[in-house]
């Protein structure tokens, strides 16, 4: 839209003054500099992951891989915990996202309906949770008392609802689905339940996509709930394993399954960190180009609050 406008106006454009030219030069240099600053650490990590362990631990790698090898990735792939935690994370992310969206939608739809008695009370009931919460310990005690510690439910259920997301979905439904549609279907004898599944859900695709994306990324990237509620290694998600390997440096000789080369362990451990970072982040970054168009939409939907 903007692009078309700009090209249409081009012939009549007044020539940039010298002051403008300095200003543009400034804008270009600043933004390019920022992009470089963002990219440098990322390129560094990727380059390290393809370099040899010795080159990494002696600080030879700066921008391009030195002594190109796939050793780091071979180690990562052989590390059994990586695969199990990957599977766990995928399970928690898909399960958690589906549950979250279901709860948010079934709360948002009735509250978007005009004329529902006591709607204000329900809204207050949900909104209050945005201002105040019980905090870390009471939530922990609740999960413990419910007996879901160290089960997959501890990862799926706490955090399965967000009042903020519910308000976003509700505003979307109110603004984009016309009241006349409801009236027309009611005349034809359509029940509220059927209206929800047949009309509200299909017409809310955009908001569902945006919220799913945000929730899924948040679950994929978080480690806190797992740290609190899971002590069993077998259930640990990827981020917790990453923390163990990357930050606590707990890679032992037996974990590497090949205890013969204990000498090369240090260089290998460094190298493995880089490969693991790339290995764990690539899936999220692969989704990124496909969902980029939803960002602006998502933020716009979120910012119009009713």
């Amino acid at each position: 839209m903007n692009a078309r406008y700009a090209t249409a106006l081009k012939p009549a454009r007044i020539k940039d003054s010298s002051g403008d030219r300095i200003f543009f030069a400034f804008c270009y240099s600043i933004t390019i500099l920022l992009a470089v600053i963002v990219l440098l650490p990322l390129i560094y990590v990727v380059s390290c992951s393809f370099s040899s362990g010795i080159a990494v631990s002696t600080g030879k790698v700066l921008l391009w891989p030195v002594e190109f090898t796939l050793d780091g990735y071979k180690r990562v792939v052989m590390y059994p915990m990586v695969w199990r935690s990957y599977a766990n994370t995928i399970l928690y992310t898909t399960g958690g996202t589906v549950l979250h969206i279901c709860l948010v939608m079934i709360a948002a739809y009735p509250l978007a309906r005009r004329g529902l008695p006591h709607k204000k009370i329900f809204m207050l009931f949900f909104s209050f949770t945005m201002l105040f919460n019980g905090g870390m310990i009471p939530s922990y005690l609740l999960v413990r008392d419910l007996g879901i510690m160290n089960t997959i439910w501890a990862m799926l259920i706490p955090g399965a609802f967000s009042a903020y997301n519910m308000v976003v979905a509700r505003t979307f439904i109110q603004n984009s689905i016309p009241e006349s549609l409801l009236e027309a279907t009611q005349v034809d004898g359509c029940s509220d339940v059927r209206y929800f599944f047949q009309f509200v859900i299909p017409l809310s695709k955009a908001v569902i996509a945006v919220l799913s994306l945000q929730v899924a990324i948040a679950i994929w990237n978080s480690y806190f709930n797992a740290l609190l509620y899971l002590t069993n290694d077998k259930l640990h998600p990827l981020q917790l394993v990453l923390r163990k390997v990357l930050l606590l440096s707990q890679i032992s000789a037996d974990d590497l399954m090949d205890p013969d080369d204990a000498l090369a362990l240090q260089g290998m451990a460094d190298l493995m960190k880089y490969s693991l970072i790339v290995f764990a982040t690539v899936p999220i970054l692969c989704v990124y180009p496909f969902v980029q168009k939803y960002f602006v939409k998502g933020i716009m939907i979120g910012s119009i609050k009713g």
Binding site: L34, A35, V38, P41, L42, V45, I217, W220, N221, S222, Y223, Q239, L242, R243, L246, L247, K273, I277, A280, T281, I284, L285, Y288, Q292, F295
Partner: peptide, 15 residues
């Protein structure tokens, strides 16, 4: 410039 937003805290701190 949007890319780093998708990196998890664990990975960010280790970077």
């Amino acid at each position: 410039t949007y890319i780093p937003h998708f990196i998890s805290v664990v990975v960010l701190v280790s970077i």
